[in-house]
C-alpha cells in the first residue's frame, strides 16, 4: 500500500508565536519549528497500517528548508521516505492554494491512502483534508478515531459531538485523524540513525507541475488585513480559601447573575 502522510511544520505552541509585520504571514524565525503535534498521530497511524498491510509510507511536507527537521523526525519514527515541496513561490499560500499544491505532488507520488492530522496548531483552519478530498474526488474520511482496512475497503469511526459515526468507503481515500487515535511512538536511537540514510526528494513548484501563478501570497484567495496583540485581561480578584471558597464563588456568580 502506498501511504502518504502530510505533515506541517508549525511554531512550537510553547514558544512565542508571531506574525510578521510586513507581509502578515507567520514569522517562522520567531519560534522553534516542530511537527504539528496532530500530524504525529497521522504518522503513527500510517506506520501501523503499513506494518499490518505492507507497503510504504511517504511523508510529504511543504515548507522552507527548516521543515527538513520535521521530515527527519518523521523518518526517525519509521517513515520510509520523504518528499519536500520547497519553493519561494509557495510562501504565503493559503489553505486553498496549499491543497492545490499538495494535490499536484500527490499526482507525482500516487497514493492509496493520504493521512493528515485533523488540523494544524498554528492556523487551525481544519479544512485541508476536506479540500484535498474534494480536489482529488476521493472519499473524505475525516475526524477518524479508529481506522480499519480490509483489502480495498476502509472503515473509520468519525468522532462527533454526540459520539461517532461509522463510515465506510473504498480506497483510495483521504483520512484525517484526531488526537488519541493512537499513541505516537518516540524515535529510537536506531531510528534516528536510519533516518539519515532514507531518501528525501526535494521538489520545486515546477517539478510538481504547480502553476506558480496560482500559489503564494500575491495569488491567495484570502488576505490578512491587519493584526494586533490582544488586549490583556484585567487582573481579577484572587482569594485564598479559608473554608468558604465555594461560597465566595457562588456569591461572585450571583453578583454576575449566573445563579
Amino acid at each position: 500500500m502506498n501511504i502518504v502522510v502530510c505533515v506541517k511544520q508549525v511554531p512550537d505552541t510553547e514558544s512565542p508565536r508571531k506574525l510578521k509585520s510586513d507581509d502578515k504571514t507567520l514569522d517562522r524565525g520567531a519560534a522553534d519549528g516542530v511537527i504539528n503535534e496532530l500530524d504525529e498521530y497521522a504518522i503513527e497511524e500510517a506506520l501501523q497500517i503499513r506494518d499490518a498491510q505492507g507497503g510504504e509510507v511517504t511523508v510529504l511536507t511543504m515548507g522552507p528548508g527548516k521543515a527538513l527537521d520535521s521530515i527527519r523526525k518523521a523518518l526517525a519514527m519509521g517513515v520510509d521516505k520523504a518528499v519536500h515541496l520547497i519553493d519561494d513561490a509557495l510562501v504565503g499560500s493559503d489553505a486553498l492554494q496549499t491543497s492545490y499544491a499538495i494535490q499536484q505532488v500527490l499526482g507525482k507520488t500516487g497514493f492509496d491512502l493520504v493521512i493528515l492530522g485533523s488540523e494544524s496548531t498554528d492556523a487551525r483552519t481544519g479544512v485541508l483534508a476536506a479540500m484535498l478530498a474534494e480536489r482529488l474526488g476521493v472519499p473524505q474520511l475525516s475526524q477518524a478515531n479508529k481506522v480499519e482496512i480490509d483489502g480495498s475497503a476502509i472503515k473509520i469511526q468519525r468522532q462527533t459531538d454526540y459520539g461517532f459515526d461509522r463510515v465506510e468507503a473504498s480506497l483510495p481515500a483521504v483520512v484525517s485523524v484526531v488526537e488519541k487515535i493512537n499513541e505516537p511512538r518516540y524515535p529510537s536511537f536506531k531510528g534516528i540513525m536510519a533516518a539519515k540514510k532514507k531518501p528525501v526528494e526535494s521538489l520545486s513548484a515546477a517539478d510538481a507541475d504547480i502553476d506558480a501563478g496560482k500559489v503564494g501570497l500575491a495569488n491567495a484567495a484570502t488576505e490578512v488585513v491587519d493584526f494586533a496583540e490582544a488586549p490583556p485581561r484585567a487582573q481579577g480578584q484572587i482569594v485564598k480559601d479559608e473554608g468558604d471558597g465555594g461560597t465566595k464563588i457562588a456569591e461572585y456568580l450571583a453578583s454576575k447573575k449566573f445563579v
Binding site: R233, A234, G236, Q237, I238, V239, K240, D241, G243, D244, G245, G246, T247, K248, I249, A250, Y252, L253, A254, V259
Partner: peptide, 28 residues
C-alpha cells in the same frame, strides 16, 4: 490560569467545588 481569571480561589478543589455546587443548588 490565575492570570486570566475574573475571580479565582486558591484552594483544594475537593473542598471548594462541592461547596460551590451546594451553594448554587441552594440558591436555585
Amino acid at each position: 490560569i490565575f492570570d486570566l481569571v475574573d475571580f479565582g480561589i486558591v484552594g483544594d478543589l475537593f473542598q471548594v467545588a462541592p461547596q460551590l455546587t451546594e451553594e448554587v443548588n441552594k440558591r436555585k
